[in-house]
Each structure stands twice: as C-alpha cells, then as structure tokens.
C-alpha cells in the first residue's frame, strides 16, 4: 500500500531516505528538472501514507523510427521499503505511459551485470537482455566482481507496438558492444 503520484520538483527536499543509500546517486538539480521539463509523465514517486517517500522512477523517451522507446534512467527504493513490489508498480506505470502516450516500441534499462537480484526482478517483469555494454559504469579495473561490475546489460521489454517482438533477441547476453556505441 503506497501512494503512486507524480514526481515533483520539491520532492528533492524529501528524498534523503532514498538517496543517502549508496546505490542511489544524487545529481545536480538540473538533472531532475530536465527530466521533469520534458517527460514529467515518465517520472513518479511511491509514497507511504505518512508522506515519507519510498521510491521513485525517472524515465525518458528517446530513439528514432523503430528504436523509439521508453528508457528507465533511475529506479530506486529506500532500503526500508524493499521487498514490497514497489519497483514493479513504478515500472508498470512507466511501461503503460511509454506504450499509450509515447507509442514506443519497447522499454529499456541498464543494469550492472553483477546485480543478479535486479536482473532476476526485471526478467520477472518480462525484460530480457538485449546486449552487454562493456565498461558502461566506467572502467574500475578488474575488481572482485570482475567485468560484471563495470559492464551493463541493456535489458528490453517489447510494447504493444512491437507485437512481433523485434526489439528483443534471445542471445542478447552474447552480443557485446562498447559503451561508445550506446547513447
């Protein structure tokens, strides 16, 4: 049970319980305002009845011709609200808007190859790996997680405009591109 509502500029004053978590980046105010000034309908917040923010998603629409799609730029849930399917609800909204308003062919997102929990969750939501992007998260050198720490999976889920599922492929994990090749 949570309130699903639009992300508003003043939410930046309230998102500390989410953003102080190490995996969530706090960007300059221009980052949030830019998304809100262009794709406000792809940005939403989950809020507890107490008014405390639980998580948010920030997305955009981009690409040309059959690559026109919704993109998940940031999806995050505060530590104390994990395991409540909040991410699923926010993704549902983003997919619905990408489909019905933007008429995109698919929705995509990037995830660290090492983040198996997230990958499994996205797979559960119907996403599959389209390609592996080398050093997407910057070159960290070969650390504990090896390449999986710095490489990203580009995961996609086709929308109703792509009934033939042309925007996905089954051997995506083997398709390797460098970070320069993706926007």
């Amino acid at each position: 049970m949570s309130v699903l509502r639009p992300f508003k500029a003043c939410d930046m004053f309230k998102f500390n319980n989410i953003n102080l978590d190490i995996w969530t980046e706090t960007y300059g105010i221009g980052f949030y305002l830019n998304y809100l000034a262009r794709w406000p309908d792809l940005c939403c917040v989950q809020e507890a009845p107490s008014g405390r923010m639980m998580g948010y998603v920030i997305g955009k629409a981009e690409g040309s011709s059959t690559e026109w799609h919704g993109h998940v730029t940031a999806l995050t849930v505060a530590p104390e609200y994990r395991r409540l399917s909040l991410a699923r609800k926010m993704m549902n909204l983003l997919e619905m808007v990408s489909d019905e308003i933007y008429k995109g062919f698919f929705v995509d997102l990037y995830v660290r190859c090492a983040n198996t929990v997230a990958i499994e969750m996205y797979e559960g939501l119907g996403y599959s790996v389209y390609r592996r992007v080398r050093e997407y998260y910057g070159s960290l050198g070969i650390g504990r997680g090896g390449r999986d720490e710095e490489d990203a999976f580009d995961m996609r889920k086709p929308l109703s405009r792509d009934p033939g599922r042309r925007s996905v492929r089954s051997n995506g994990r083997d398709m390797i591109v460098s970070a320069h090749d993706v926007s």
């Binding site: 639009p6 508003k8 500029a9 105010i29 305002l33 809100l36 406000p40």
Partner: peptide, 12 residues
C-alpha cells in the same frame, strides 16, 4: 509546454 511543471519549478 509542460505547464503542470511550471508552478512546481517556481515553488522549488
């Protein structure tokens, strides 16, 4: 033309 955002930005 994202009019819904303008008052919010001003408030921010």
């Amino acid at each position: 033309e994202k009019y819904s955002q303008i008052p919010e930005f001003i408030e921010f």
